[in-house]
Every structure is written in structure tokens, then in C-alpha cells.
């Protein structure tokens, strides 16, 4: 069910590991599938598992263990806000509250227009830049004070 482009990307990941260790590429392959599809439906997990020659349950264990995989659909923009202690001390929780109010949703919810999903994150290793948030697992935003948040939401259509 994955596009040729995704398969090519997965092949590049497989090449990083010894020939008999294709399973090593499962994390990357699931991330690639999620990037293509927006989330990880079970069909995608299964096709990744089949492609790597591992049991679907083995791939599902991985997909459900790491918290950047989305096993349910998310909005076009997934905002993951770190609220862990160092961020909290510098406004991480306040930023999350601000977003909740502004978007009218709670954690793990999606705006009715399908634009935003809000997630509570754990430490992203960027505590010096607090408050930090991650957009779609890819783009980390630093020092997210109200003005910066407003600007970000404006940019993300």
C-alpha cells in the first residue's frame, strides 16, 4: 500500500544494516509510512512488516511502544508540547494551556476542521529552549511564548 517513493526510502534504511537484520529498519520504515499516510493504519503496519519479513505483531509492538507513532488519525498538524519539569519551569505547561484554549481542544484531540492535533510530549532534549513544541514530529520550535505560538498557528494552514 506504500508508494514507490516510500519503498525506495525504506530500501535505503534497510541498506544501513547487515543483510540478515532487516528488522532493524522497522522504526524508520514505520516513520516513512506515517510520513506518507499521516498516521499508521494497521494495513500500513502490516505492509511494513511483510516488506521486512517480520511478523505483523512484531511491527505492531514497535509502533505502539514509541510515542511518536500515531496509531489513530491526527490532524494535518500535530503539535506536541513538552510539559516536563524543565519546560514546565519555563512555561511549558502554560504554553500547552494557551494552545488548548486557543484551539478549543485538549490533549489527544483534533480540531473539528482536522487542522490541529494536540499532544503532550515528554522531554525532547531541548530544555534550554523551553517552551518547546514539535510540529509533525519533524520541526522543533523553540521559546514558544504566546506571540510565537500565534505566529506558528497562523502559518500552519
Amino acid at each position: 500500500m506504500l508508494t514507490t517513493e516510500s519503498i525506495q526510502k525504506i530500501d535505503r534504511e534497510i541498506a544501513k544494516y547487515p543483510a540478515d537484520q532487516k528488522q532493524s529498519a522497522v522504526m524508520a520504515a514505520l516513520a516513512i509510512a506515517q510520513e506518507e499516510l499521516g498516521w499508521l493504519p494497521s494495513e500500513a503496519i502490516e505492509s511494513v512488516a511483510d516488506y521486512l519479513g517480520i511478523p505483523p505483531m512484531a511491527a505492531y509492538e514497535v509502533a505502539s511502544f514509541y510515542n511518536m507513532y500515531d496509531l489513530k488519525p491526527v490532524g494535518r498538524h500535530k503539535l506536541t508540547v513538552c510539559t516536563n519539569l524543565p519546560c514546565m519551569l519555563s512555561g511549558g505547561v502554560d504554553a500547552a494551556e494557551y494552545l488548548k484554549k486557543k484551539l478549543g481542544i485538549g490533549f489527544n484531540e483534533t480540531t473539528p476542521d482536522g487542522r490541529f492535533t494536540l499532544k503532550e510530549g515528554e522531554c525532547m532534549g531541548a530544555c534550554g529552549d523551553a517552551p518547546v513544541m514539535l510540529v509533525n514530529n519533524r520541526h522543533m520550535c523553540a521559546s514558544m511564548l504566546p506571540e510565537q505560538i500565534d505566529k506558528l498557528l497562523e502559518e500552519l494552514k
Binding site: 544501513k16 544494516y17 532493524s24 522504526m27 524508520a28 514505520l30 516513520a31 511502544f65 514509541y66 510515542n67 511518536m68 507513532y69 515528554e122 522531554c123 514530529n137
Partner: peptide, 10 residues
């Protein structure tokens, strides 16, 4: 040498 990425697990 290669890079392997995590995906959210402390």
C-alpha cells in the same frame, strides 16, 4: 557508520 533514529522512548 550509520545513523539510526529513535521515535519517542526515554
Amino acid at each position: 557508520l550509520n545513523a539510526h533514529h529513535g521515535y519517542g522512548a526515554y
